[in-house]
């Protein structure tokens, strides 16, 4: 077994730090948007809004059954043909939101649907309108139930950002591939890549576990 080239590692670690910032930036905004998409779409599905519901179902199928890389190619190389030119970052964020939106929708929808009908009825009998019932009664309970699923989605989406290197964004994956190509320091480059992802994901994973435990502890059930 040969030893890692520590000079190489210290020299190029700052590149990884820089790339990590981009990865986190894309993941953060992409996931935030995905969550917003999920909230809106799951509510529309929950209320069985005509037409919109069909459109959302079609969107979910399209989004979940096509690879993110293909979706990114479409946004980055395809859309300019019809006059829509977005930067790589914008495409990456929208791509993550497009993919994550469907996962968030399904997770939240199952949470919403698991809330007993009596909750809605007793809210109605107290005079709460639909909006108040959703905001005060249904959504908070559905969120608590959805926490494990949402956390899994968040981790999944952060990892998925690794494909944005496919549209020439200098994220972690891109830097690693670049260094391998330039210096053929495969072991060092990939080790740093793994560590960089772990530094980003382990805290997220720990927070997710704590959150899940808290929610389980809160265990609303009657």
């Amino acid at each position: 077994m040969k030893y890692l080239d520590w000079n190489f590692i210290t020299k190029y670690a700052p590149l990884y730090a820089e790339a990590a910032k981009l990865t986190v930036f894309i993941a953060f905004w992409g996931i935030l948007l995905a969550f917003a998409v999920g909230v809106i779409c799951s509510a529309a599905l929950y209320y069985k809004v005509p037409v919109l519901r069909r459109i959302i179902q079609a969107y979910i199928e399209l989004s979940r059954n096509t690879p993110l890389l293909v979706q990114l190619f479409f946004l980055y190389f395809g859309l300019p043909n019809i006059g829509i030119v977005w930067s790589g970052e914008t495409c990456a964020i929208i791509g993550i939101a497009f993919l994550g939106g469907s996962y968030m929708t399904e997770t939240l929808r199952s949470g919403l649907e698991s809330i007993d009908k009596i909750q809605e009825e007793s809210a109605a009998s107290l005079g709460l309108n639909k909006w108040l019932t959703m905001k005060e009664i249904i959504f908070p309970q559905a969120m608590a139930i959805s926490v494990p699923g949402i956390c899994a989605n968040v981790i999944f989406l952060i990892k998925e950002t690794s494909v944005v290197s496919g549209i020439a964004l200098a994220d972690l994956m891109y830097v690693a591939k670049d260094l391998i190509g330039l210096y053929y320091k495969t072991d060092e480059s990939l080790t740093m890549l793994v560590i960089a992802y772990l530094i980003i994901l382990l805290p997220v994973s720990i927070i997710a576990t704590l959150l899940e435990r808290r929610m389980r502890h809160a265990g609303f059930g009657n």
């Binding site: 009596i118 007793s122 109605a124 107290l126 009664i137 309970q141 809160a218």
Partner: peptide, 20 residues
């Protein structure tokens, strides 16, 4: 209806308190 419901108090068979 929402206004009218405030004149009506209803208690259900199953415990319908908001658990959260």
């Amino acid at each position: 209806l929402t206004r009218l419901r405030q004149k009506i108090g209803m208690v259900f068979q199953s415990y319908d308190l908001f658990p959260h």
